[in-house]
Every structure is written in structure tokens, then in C-alpha cells.
């Protein structure tokens, strides 16, 4: 059995860069997971808060409490996580 092929591949690997890429993937996945939990909890808490906000404002007032900025910021966090994951998967091993 000729093992030269696989051995050559292993020897040819740039280990520090591979380890860096693995760490980057793990951190990116962790960050994305955190961003997902954050967004989910944000939606839940925003609904709870909205109940009290509506109890405060009179029915004739159509002014809606502004939570869209918070949602957008949370979506940006998700986007950042996704971007870092893509970067760690595809970009880091490029020269």
C-alpha cells in the first residue's frame, strides 16, 4: 500500500494556518450562535415590553414604541457572525 500520497499531503499542510482557521471557524460559529440566541430573546422581551408600553399610551395615540432600531442592530450582529463564518471558511486559506 502506497502511503506516500497521504503523507505528502499531511507534510505539505501549513499547520499554524490550519489551526488558526479551525479556531476562527469555532469562534465564528460561537459568535453566530450567540447572535441567534440574542435575536430570539430580543423578540421575546420586546413583545413583553410592548404590552406595558401599550398600557401607557392611550388607544387614540397611534404612536408605536420604537423597537425597530434594536431589531436592526441585532440583525447586524447576525450578519457580522455570518460574514465572519464565511470569511473563516473560505478566505483565510487564500494566499
Amino acid at each position: 500500500m502506497d502511503l506516500n500520497g497521504p503523507i505528502n499531503i499531511i507534510l505539505g499542510l501549513s499547520w499554524p494556518h490550519l489551526i488558526f482557521q479551525l479556531a476562527a471557524i469555532i469562534f465564528s460559529v460561537g459568535y453566530l450562535g450567540y447572535a441567534l440566541i440574542y435575536h430570539q430573546q430580543l423578540i421575546k422581551m420586546a413583545k413583553n415590553t410592548l404590552v406595558y408600553e401599550y398600557l401607557l399610551t392611550d388607544p387614540e395615540q397611534t404612536q408605536k414604541p420604537n423597537q425597530t432600531i434594536l431589531h436592526s442592530l441585532s440583525l447586524l450582529q447576525l450578519l457580522l457572525g455570518a460574514f465572519m463564518l464565511i470569511m473563516s471558511l473560505f478566505l483565510l486559506n487564500l494566499a
Binding site: H17, A24, Y31, Y34, L80, F83, M84, M87, L92
Partner: peptide, 17 residues
């Protein structure tokens, strides 16, 4: 360079979070 860039992006992402 792209690895350095990743570290910087990750750092700012952490601050943002």
C-alpha cells in the same frame, strides 16, 4: 494579511456584541 484582518473584525464584533 487576511488572518490579521479576521482578528481585527472579530475584536470589533466582540465589542459590538
Amino acid at each position: 494579511q487576511n488572518q490579521q484582518l479576521f482578528i481585527i473584525i472579530f475584536w470589533y464584533a466582540l465589542i459590538y456584541s
